[in-house]
């Protein structure tokens, strides 16, 4: 599987902070992971967990006052977190594509989709007008826009939500990037359209050998699409591993709670498992393990010592339950 090949993307100890009047607030803290070429990595977490910020940092689009305060991001062997703005700009769209949540607002309403595709293609591939238009047309066909030769001259408001998201995906594909950051690509869509978009993303990923970082709060989408899952909580990576392991047997108590709180069809219809309390806001993260105030399995060590990712099952979990000494004493599973 993926991990044997040399990684496409390496994120090492990434820290993202916001400068505020009361000093710096850390929103993402010490996140490390790697992605192999062609791999789909799901990044899941609740709103405010830092998953979208991580995506934005990789593509170099953190909004000020947010900034990378530490760590490294390496794409294909080249460090990209400290590139000068013009070089980073050339990288965006060409090496790393992006798909955003809301297809209604991702497209400029005043230009035809064809024009937006052509300008992107020309910026990155330097094709002539006719060749760029032909490529735009091919892309629209590839993402499944019917009557693409007619629709290419339509404006975004003439497309339905699902079709617009297909156009957005075509725009991300313009220069055949090796990595796509998809931030909640299905959240704004109706359920039957969600399934179509997921299927499209999977097919494109396979056909183009693209890696996709799929940022979402929807565990169902991850279970359906991803090879591996990274679970984030309060700006930290708490668990990472193959999707099958994490869905079936989560190793971190937070992941376990999260999985238990998802209602499933055919499941029991009495009370859902719930995690009491709420995720701490950035700047108010408790010492030790960020999850310890809500954790039913916490013990003394969790209160003041922050756990790093420790091998657990097929992946790794940032939980002291998996420290060799504790694992022997406290059975978990």
């Amino acid at each position: 599987m993926a991990s044997e090949r040399s990684p496409l993307l390496q994120v090492e100890n990434l820290r993202i902070a916001f400068a505020t009047r009361r000093g710096e607030v850390t929103a993402v803290d010490g996140v490390s992971f790697a992605m192999a070429p062609g791999e789909v990595l799901g990044v899941v977490g609740e709103s405010g967990a830092g998953k979208s910020l991580t995506g934005a940092a990789i593509i170099g689009l953190l909004e000020p006052p947010g900034h990378i305060a530490g760590g490294r991001i390496v794409l294909g062997g080249r460090r990209i977190d400290n590139l000068p703005a013009p070089e980073m700009r050339r990288l965006r769209g060409k090496e790393i594509g992006a798909i955003f949540q809301d297809p209604l607002t991702s497209l400029n309403p005043l230009y035809t989709v064809g024009r937006q595709l052509v300008e992107t293609i020309q910026v990155h591939l330097g094709l002539g007008a006719a060749a760029a238009r032909q490529r735009a047309l091919d892309l629209l066909k590839e993402v499944g826009i019917p009557a693409a030769d007619r629709r290419i001259d339509h404006y975004p408001h003439q497309f339905s939500g699902g079709m617009r998201q297909r156009v957005v995906i075509a725009l991300a594909l313009c220069a055949n990037p090796r990595l796509i950051i998809a931030d909640e690509p299905t959240t704004a869509l109706d359920v039957s359209i969600q399934a179509q978009i997921i299927a499209l993303l999977k097919r494109l990923c396979r056909d183009h050998g693209m890696a996709v970082m799929l940022v979402t709060h929807d565990m169902g989408v991850i279970a359906e699409t991803a090879d591996r899952v990274a679970v984030m909580y309060a700006g930290r990576l708490v668990e990472i591993g193959p999707v099958r392991d994490i869905v079936r047997q989560p190793r971190h108590p937070y992941t376990a709670g999260l999985m238990g709180s998802i209602p499933t069809i055919g499941g029991r219809r009495d009370r859902l498992q719930q995690i009491d309390g709420a995720m701490p806001r950035p700047g108010a993260v408790p010492p030790g393990c960020a999850f310890h105030p809500r954790c039913r399995e916490r013990f003394a060590r969790c209160l003041d010592e922050r756990p790093n990712l420790l091998p657990a099952g097929g992946g790794a979990a940032a939980c002291w339950l998996h420290a060799p000494a504790e694992a022997a004493a406290v059975p978990h599973g």
């Binding site: 709103s47 709060h217 238990g260 709180s261 209602p263 859902l272 498992q273």
Partner: peptide, 11 residues
């Protein structure tokens, strides 16, 4: 709402 909060509200 997020799923874990959704579970709280549904319960």
């Amino acid at each position: 709402l997020d799923v874990s909060v959704q579970a709280q509200i549904l319960n």
